[in-house]
Each structure stands twice: as C-alpha cells, then as structure tokens.
Design a protein around this nucleic acid. Structure first.
Length: 1072
RNA sequence: GGGCAGUUAGCUCAACUGGUUAGAGCUUUCCGUUUACACCGGAAGGGUUGGGGGUUCGAGCCCCUCACUGCCCACCA
C-alpha cells in the first residue's frame, strides 16, 4: 500500500537508488528473464548469436577535478531517458560513465586552486612530482562526480566507470597516434605560440591576460618599389654583350638617352634595368628565380625556349618577381649583386611619394615583416595594392596586400604584417593566403626564445638582444630619414597570467594531423544518414566546420595528459634558421623526420626491455582474506595445481631466467615453474611485497572497522599506513629492480615472480598511471622497463585533450573488452556547443581506425541558463544550486525541467517555477496512483495476481480508457523514437493530468463509488477497477524514462502478473 | 572577424519540418470542493507570432530585407 499524504521524494529517491544498485540492474550482465547475472563471456556470446540486442551509450565524461555542472547533469537526464527507454524495450543496455582529466583546464585548475594557494610554482617541481600530485587531486575529486551521477538516477554501469588516463585508455589513444604516423597523416610543422620567456614555455591563450602598459608608437617609412624592374641578359644585344664579355665586371650607372632609345621601347624615368652576365648564369640568383618562376627544368631550357622579347613586353609583372635593388638603401646589396654578376642601371633617386608610412609599437620586428597591409577600400592606397616595398635597413622586398581587418581611420591606415610575432598578423596572413593562393606570403621568425634577434634578415643586428639592439635600429632609421614619429601611448599588451611576463608570440614547431583525407569520408557518414544529428539543422554547422578544417595542431606544452609517444635520440633544440625558419636540432644535427636514428614513434621507450611480471599463485591469505604483506604464507593446494595449468603458456614464451621474491608464496611459485621449464632462477630481496606495518595479518573487515573512511582501492598504495614501508622506500627498491633488469639481466627473457602491490607500484612508477583493477593470482603483466642509460628522450609535449577524448567511444569499449559487441554505439548525447570540437573528432578517429561511425545518432542538448536567461556564472550570481533545487523539489521534478517542452539544441532558463510545477505533477501522479490502487485492492485484495486482458473488456467506459491509453502510447512512442522528448513529456503531462485525472478518474467515480440507487453492476465495477490499474501501469512505463524514482516506487506497489518484472525498468508498454 | 541558433501571452517555453479557432506552465481574476490530491477542481483574462516586403488556395514555419539577443571558435580560424 502506498503511504497516505503527499509524495515524499527525499526518502523514496534514496530507497529506490539503493534498490537499483543493490540489484545490479544497470549492468548489461543482469538478465531480467532469470533475475540473475550471466558472465560477461556469456553476454558476449548471446549478443553474437543475436539472442539479445545490444544498445550502448558512452557518457561524455565530466571533468574529474570538480562536481559536474548543471549542463553535465542535464545531459545525464537525456542519456538516462534514452537508456531506460531502450532497456524497457528489451535491449541489453550498456552505459559507460567516465571522468575526464581535462588537460589544459585540469592543469590550470590544479595550478590555481592547489599550488598557488600553497605558494608553490609548477616549474619548481619535477615533472613526475607534479604529475603524481595532480593525479591524486583528480582521484580525490572524481568520487564527487560519481555520487552526483548516481543521485541523478543515471542508470549507467558504475562498475565500469573509467578515467581518461586509465592505462587501458592510454594504450588505445597512443596507438592511434602511432597508426596515424605510419599512415603519414601526422607531421611536424610550425605555428604561432604564446611564449612566456620567464616560464620558458608556450602557454595557452586563456592563460594570458591583457594589461595596459605605457609603450611607444613609431611611424616608419617603407620605400615603395614603384618603378618597373627590367631584366636583360638573354636578349640579343651586342652592346650589352660587349660590356659583359669585355669587362666581366659590373657597372652601375644611369642609362644614357642613346642607350635608352636603342634598347628599350617604353622605358620610363625611374625604371631599373638589371643585366645579367650570361657566363655566370648558374650561380646567379636571377637565373634561379627565372627558372623557378617559369618552371623550366633547368636554366638551359629557360634560355633556349623562352621568348624573352615577349616576356619583356607582355609580362612585366613577372619581371617584378625577379630581382632588383636600391643601392641607396642597402650598401651591402651592391656587393652581392657584383658577386653574382649583375649590372644595375639606376635612372633616378627616390622621391618622397615613394614611401608608405607604417605605425608600429615594435620596430624591431620589422625584419620579420612579410607584407604590408592596407584596407581594400582605402582609396588613399588603392594604386599601391599589389606593389612591393623594401623593408628599411634590408634588401628584402615585401608585397602590399589588403585585409578588411586594417582600420582605415586608425593610425596611418597601414599595417606591417609580421606573422611570426603577432597573432593578428598571423591571422591576416592566413586569410590572405587562403584567398590568394598564388600570391601567398610567408612568415619570418626573427626573435629567438632567448629574445635575441636572429637570422639573416636582421643583418648586422642579428645575435643581439632585441631590447639592446632597438636604440641602434631606431638611430639607423633616423639617419636614413625613415623614422618620422615617435610618441608615447597607452597600449594593451598580452601578459602571462601567472608569471606576469610579457608574452612573446613566436613560431614554434608543433605536431599536426593532416585533416584533408578525413573530410570527405567524415562528411559522407552524416550525408548518407549513417549518423543522424538531432536537431538536424546542426548538420550545417558540422559541415561548415569540416569543410573549413585546417590541419590540427595536437601537441600542447603541458604536463597533465598523454605525453606524446615520440622519442628523439638526444636532446631536441628548436632554433631559428638563417632565413627566419624554425629548425629543430638533435645535438648539432638538424632533425630529419624520416630518419629513424633520430626520431621514433613508439608507445614504450625505444630501447625498453620487455619483462613479464607474474603474481604468485593462490596462497593461504588469499583464501582467508587477510593482508599478508611481508607475512609469510604458503601456497594452497589449489594454487599449486593452477600453476601447472599455465605451464604450457609459459613454455611458449621461452623464458631463460626467473627472478623471484623470497616470500614463500612467490618462491614456491617460482620453483615449480623453474623446475617445469628447466630454467635458472634467482631470489631477490627487493622483490618482496610491501610491508603493511600495523595492518599485517589483519582482515579487510578489521581494517574497515578501525577506519571506515578507508578506500580499499587506494589503501595498498597509500602512504598513510602506520608503521608500514613508505612509498618512497618501495620506490627505492623498485629503482634497484629497474637498474638490475637494465644492466645485469640485459638480454635475458625475464619472468619475474612477485606480488600484486609491488607490480602496481612498478606500473605507477613507470607509466605514471594507477591500475583501478586488481591483479589476480598468476596473472601476468608485460612491463617495459626503460634502460638505465639511453640517449633517447621523450617529447615534452602532451596531446590536445580532444585528441584523446575524440577516441572515447571505442577506447572505453576496448578497455572493457566489449568493442565487438557494442560498437558502433547507438547514441552520443552531448551539448551542442561541442559538436565541432568533440563530435567531429570522434567521427574522424572512428573512421580512421575502423572505417565505421562511432555512433548512429547524435543528440545535442541545449544549455541550461540561469533564471535571468543568461549563461550561468559565479560572477553573475545566477548559478542554480542543484543540491538546493533537488532537496526542495526532488530529482524527478528537476529531470522533468530538462525534458518538458524542450527541443534538442535549444537553450532554456532554469527558473524555480518549473521544478515546482513538476513537483506538483509528481504529487498528482502519486495521489492518482493511491486512488486507483485503493479501489483495486478493495475488490481484489493486495496479494492477487493482476489478470487483465485489454482485448476482452466489456464495459464501454473501460473501452474508452483503453482507447485513450492506446492513443497516448502511440503519440509518446512516436515522439520518443524521434528524440522529441519535449513533446513526449508534454503529451504525458497533459494527457495524464488533464485527461486521465481530471476527466477519466472523475468519471470512474460513478462506477467505483456508486451512490444511492446506482445501477452499476458488480461486473462493471470490477472491469473499471482493473482497467484503471492497467492505465496507471501504462502511464508509469511511459513516464519512467523521465521520472524514474517515483515510477519505480509506485510500480513496487502495483499488482503485477507473473510475466512482469519486479522493477519497472524491464517492462515495456502493452503491445496489444 | 567568421559561423550557428533565436525573437510567439506579463514571465519561461511548445507548435511533431506549409494545413481546423497559435497551445502549455507560472502569474492575475472569479467560482467551487475538502476521504486520491489545497502540491486540488472549474472558468476567465491575456497574441496583428520583432518590423517591413514577397511566394502560396493557405505562412509562426519558405524567400528577401532591417533590427535586436544568445552561443561557438582564441597553442583550433
């Protein structure tokens, strides 16, 4: 019987959650037919034989370091509704929850919330120490998220909760990189990074802040190459021939009128004529440029096949590309020309209008300019578009390009473009290059990480600290009359949030994934309908992103995450080449990416020694379940038998040395194996188990009683055990072990017989991860022990978070050994804001590795906003306190807020009138159930089986109710199948309250509570009582995916027949 | 800067891809009931669907245009 009074959700939710978890209903191994569990192996077999239909959803993992926010919680509601709906329809549901290490953000939170509050600093720590601490921080916090997930009613298999840095996930993620590398789809390239000179590290944009500082603005004149540049040398010209052959030297002079008339047609004052010595044509840069420009195979071809007369007359623009000089600006240039056998005739000096004036706060970066930009609509400069200018103090000429980003009325309206040292310029370059592929501009890095000017472009200033060279540069500009203005201004500069150092944007070498090959197949999966995105209009967004996707930089200068499985033989150094290009060196040699003597992609250390670690066979303490540590226990008879069973497997490995712990259980195990295999064995003191101090010999029950807060999972590796061997001591022993394997036993095929906790310590030490699962007796772990001394160094970078989370669906399934059965998954449910970042990456990787989509449907939910309709944020004070709302209105009511009248992809405000309304709805449901059941039990009693067939009712009123139910079921089912949860809950809400309760229940009172003189027959009364229960049960089943707690509670009180499951989770609506 | 949504009753949102009189919840007003439910029932008020134009037998929905609002992208653009 349901208790009278209003619905008590607090108590019910606690009770029902306990009921679900205790019974293991969320596990796919649970078999509702037998109300029992099958083994995972059996489950797999049954799925393969089509005996049961699998359905899976991998939950998007919330960040491990904090409680899930309201967006994650709303996601759980949708995920859960879909899973419960599938489960009720007889599918075998697997829903895997997880937690994300959240690379960049995770590291940022740890540094801010933990280290900085303790006055510590990341770069004062060793990488290992930092990693261990942040790991601990995450482990401690992720329990909170798990609690929230359970309390929201998420029907996921919590035993399979998995962390993104779990070693099983790591293996999969890294192997994908290896595969991509083999397929030639990753490469190293350069991109602009924010260099923090103080931290000596590249940092993310959101780790920088803008600060107002006083700075100086300079205006600098760049000379325009207005004149045409003529190139001669191949043209038949006896006069020039004579000059060249006779003197074999160079002359620079103005052309006299006679020459002009004789050799050139429409030559103008100001043009420059460059002549080339034919005899020196192979070394001349002008020849080379000509060759490249016209794409001749060699210079002879260029010479013989090209009609130079036509070129000169028709295609002057091409000649502009060739070579030219202003002797006035660059004394060194003449010298260069002379060496290369050029003759330069200059017709006239430069004039004032031959300059363009640029405003800049950073004159020292002008050596890195690769263009000058003006606004395309700026009429002042329209005649200059496409012309070239000379960078002052150099002989480098750069084009004048256009960009709508250049503000016409700001400064001079002219911007110098230094892509290697300015974010904005880098963007302008990228945009220009995208639109003007044949006129693309490059970058020139002229500042090193040590803040020196570097490369040829800087001329005599190269090699000096740029701040020290700056006064000299300004002086040189001044003396050439090229510095026109210098004023003090306030400017916003980018500063590192933590170190307060001025950010130096510069080019750095990064790993990229080339994305071109992904585009078509990935888009095709959506176009063909293999993957459906809900709402459909988001597919546009997806295509736009994919089409415009550029190669993806996947390396990040962080410590928290997956370190890249790339190894360099020696220390890698990044330097700036002579022409401003980024070059990497290993030692003194430039890095050649194809040279496997320099670079290797490998998950383990390239010289790692493979050793097999075997846990001893079953010993007495395993049976009696107490903590043995260094307490010596003997093997059981069963244990000894089991050893013999694995001998054939061990034989096939051809071990030639066995190392073992001196404790009896390991020693006995090893001696049996050694005897059977006929292999030498050595006892080593440092292989024994950890000493557990006061806990030695204690049973787990005793441990838990003495300290109820103890987490058995973490106990064995904890450093808080009284009188136990410290973790440092264990690690010292392991150090000795590693040394021994790397030196003494090098070249041996090793089997090491030891203990579970010791193996766990070793894995943690070597792989920086913890095993969440136990190592069973006689389980073998293959461990790669790095050599004691090696030149190989691992890449310092970690992967971009999306690189790993993009593999989440298959990585989780592979980790749990359920890939074959459950992949592709059925649905991916996540926020619409990460469609591009996450969903597209998952499809990309899934296509690459398996040529399959990772899921069939994508449901994108909108974002939950504050009551004011704004995005929730602490500073706005509009954050919904989920605990408060849940305790006031109940979890079911909160869940209904997420569903009711909501459509996929649209955001909605969380106002308290909503859960209040649904609390009332739940109460209505509760009371209606009470009414229906009271009447039923009055007639049938409590313990009777519910015998009812909707086809064989006689009463007109009962038929009316059945019709009503049929219609609701049809409507709701239709909407569920179309992911229209908003409509489904709307239907249910309206029909249940305003039709079923307000109309049908009221009408039923005529039959169930007949007044004086009523003509209602007993049969009719019975019929109505039955059909009302039937209707209630159908409603409960339809409502269950949305409000699981209350429906389960009522279901527990409802009369059932023998075919119905005791939990509502496994009952589908009536098919009749 | 680009892209994507959105603008419907006082407030928060629907309207199942062009089809009856545009519907709900909250709020407001009136009436009623107290053994399923006051976390109730019955009723009422409230809309030129952001402005303007177009296509159509028919437009909240499609097209054009203007005006706002929100979101995403920043070691990705």
């Amino acid at each position: 019987m349901l208790p009278s009074g209003a619905y008590n959700f607090t108590e019910t939710e606690r009770e029902i959650l306990e009921f679900w978890l205790r019974n293991g209903f969320f596990k796919p191994e649970y078999d509702p037919k037998t109300d029992n569990f099958i083994s995972t192996e059996e489950l797999k077999k049954k799925i393969k034989s089509n005996e049961i239909t699998p359905w899976s959803l991998i939950c998007p993992p919330p960040n491990a370091y904090a409680r899930p926010h309201i967006g994650n919680l709303s996601g759980y509601a949708y995920q859960d509704a879909m899973a419960r709906y599938a489960r009720m329809r007889g599918k075998r549901v697997l829903m895997i929850p997880g937690k994300d290490h959240a690379g960049l953000e995770g590291e940022g939170v740890f540094v801010r919330e933990v280290l900085e509050k303790q006055g510590r600093y990341k770069f004062q720590m060793s990488r290992d120490d930092f990693y261990n601490e942040i790991w601990e921080f995450n482990v401690q916090n992720k329990a909170k998220a798990l609690k929230d997930e359970k309390e929201m009613g998420l029907s996921a298999d919590f035993d399979r909760d998995i962390f993104t840095l779990d070693p099983r996930i790591v293996d999969t993620v890294l192997s994908t990189f290896v595969e991509l590398y083999k397929a030639g789809m990753v490469y190293k390239g350069v991109r602009l990074v924010n260099w923090d000179p103080k931290a000596r590290s590249a940092i993310a944009d959101n780790q920088c802040v803008r600060e107002e500082r006083e700075g100086k603005l300079y205006k600098i004149k760049y000379p325009i190459i207005r004149r045409k540049v003529w190139s001669l040398g191949f043209r038949e010209s006896t006069h020039l021939e004579r000059i060249i052959s006779k003197e074999k030297t160079i002359e620079t002079r103005a052309l006299n009128p006679e020459e002009k008339d004789r050799y050139f047609g429409d030559i103008f004052t100001g043009d420059i004529i460059v002549c080339v010595d034919k005899t020196d044509r192979n070394s001349s840069p002008i020849y080379k440029k000509v060759k490249n420009y016209f794409q001749f195979k060699n210079i002879e071809d260029a010479f013989t096949k090209l009609d130079w007369k036509n070129v000169l007359d028709i295609d002057r623009a091409s000649m502009l590309e060739v070579e030219h000089s202003y002797s006035k600006l660059s004394e060194g240039y003449l010298e260069k020309i002379n060496k290369n056998g050029l003759i330069v005739f200059e017709l006239e000096d430069l004039k004032e209008e031959d300059f363009i004036t640029v405003a800049t706060t950073r004159p020292e970066t002008m050596f890195g300019d690769t263009a000058i930009a003006v606004n395309p609509d700026d009429i002042r400069y329209s005649d200059l578009q496409g012309k070239r200018v000379i960078i002052p103090l150099t002989d480098i000429d750069i084009p004048i390009i256009t960009s709508p980003r250049v503000l016409v009325d700001y400064g001079t309206g002219v911007l110098k473009i230094t892509p290697a040292h300015s974010q904005d310029d880098f963007i302008i370059m990228s945009e220009w290059n995208k639109e003007n592929k044949n006129k693309s501009i490059g970058y020139r890095n002229v500042i090193s990480k040590e803040l020196f000017l570097t490369g040829n472009a800087c001329g005599k200033y190269s090699g000096r600290k740029y701040k020290e060279a700056l006064p000299d540069i300004l002086e040189a500009l001044k003396s050439n009359g090229l510095l026109v203005l210098e004023e003090t201004i306030k400017q916003n500069v980018l500063v590192a949030d933590r170190t307060k150092a001025l950010i130096e944007p510069l080019m750095s070498s990064q790993w990229f994934i080339s994305v071109e090959k992904f585009k078509k197949p990935v888009m095709d999966m959506v176009k063909s309908g293999e993957i459906s995105i809900h709402p459909k209009n988001m597919e546009e967004k997806f295509f736009f992103w994919m089409e415009n996707l550029r190669d993806w930089a996947i390396s990040r200068s962080l410590w928290w995450g997956y370190r890249m499985p790339v190894w360099y033989k020696g220390e890698i150094k990044e330097e700036i080449g002579e022409n401003g290009e980024v070059v990497e060196f290993i030692g003194n040699e430039p890095l050649d990416y194809s040279n496997s003597n320099q670079i290797l992609v490998s998950i383990t250390h390239p010289e790692a020694i493979e050793a097999h670690f075997l846990r001893h066979a079953e010993a007495l303490h395993n049976v009696d379940q107490f903590i043995a540590g260094v307490t010596d226990t003997k093997l059981t008879e069963k244990g000894k038998t089991k050893i013999l069973e694995i001998i054939p497997k061990l034989k096939s490995e051809n071990y030639n040395l066995i190392l073992y712990s001196p404790l009896s259980r390991a020693k006995e195990t090893a001696s049996i194996i050694a005897k059977e295999l006929g292999v030498e064995s050595i006892e080593l003191e440092f292989l024994k188990e950890r000493n557990f101090g006061n806990y030695e010999g204690k049973s787990w029950d005793e441990v838990l009683q003495s300290n109820p807060n103890i987490d058995p999972e973490k106990f064995t590796l904890s450093n808080d055990l009284v009188n136990a061997e410290t973790t440092a001591e264990v690690n010292n022993r392991l150090e000795e072990l590693i040394q021994n394997i790397a030196t003494k036993y090098k070249g041996k095929k090793l089997l090491v017989v030891t203990h579970a906790v010791l193996i766990k310590f070793l894995e943690k030490k070597l792989y920086n991860t913890e095993r969440p699962v136990e190592i069973s007796n006689l389980e073998r772990k293959i461990i790669f022990v790095p050599p004691a001394i090696s030149e190989w160094r691992q890449d310092e970078n970690v992967f971009d978070t999306w690189f790993s989370s993009g593999q989440w669906p298959y990585a989780t399934l592979m980790a749990w050994g359920l890939f074959d059965e459950y992949f592709p998954t059925d649905v991916m449910e996540t926020g619409f804001d990460i469609l591009e970042n996450w969903v597209s990456r998952m499809v990309m990787f899934s296509w690459f590795r398996f040529n399959k989509p990772p899921f069939k449907d994508v449901y994108l939910h909108g974002l939950v906003q504050g009551a004011d309709g704004q995005k929730m944020s602490k500073s706005k004070g509009n954050v919904v306190d989920i605990d408060k709302v849940r305790s006031e209105f109940g979890t079911d009511a909160v869940r209904l807020v997420y569903f009711y009248q909501n459509t996929a992809g649209s955001s909605y405000a969380f106002t308290n009138d909503k859960p209040k309304n649904f609390r009332q709805f739940n109460n209505k449901l509760w009371n209606a159930a009470k009414y229906v059941l009271q009447n039923y039990f009055e007639i049938f009693g409590e313990k009777t089986e519910f015998l009812f067939n909707s086809k064989s009712v006689e009463s007109e009123f009962a038929k009316k109710i059945i019709d009503h139910i049929k219609e609701v079921v049809t409507q709701v089912t239709k909407n569920m199948d179309k992911f229209q949860f908003g409509l489904a809950t709307f239907n249910l809400y309206q029909e249940f309250w305003h039709t079923f309760c307000d109309k049908l229940i009221e009408e039923s009172k005529i039959f169930l509570k007949p007044g004086e003189g009523s003509k209602v027959s007993q049969e009719e009364k019975t019929d109505v009582a039955l059909v009302m229960v039937y209707a209630l049960k159908e409603y409960l089943k339809l409502l269950h995916p949305f409000i699981p707690f209350i429906t389960e509670k009522i279901w527990s009180e409802v009369p059932k027949n023998s075919k119905e499951h005791r939990s509502i989770m496994f009952n589908s609506t009536d098919k009749n």
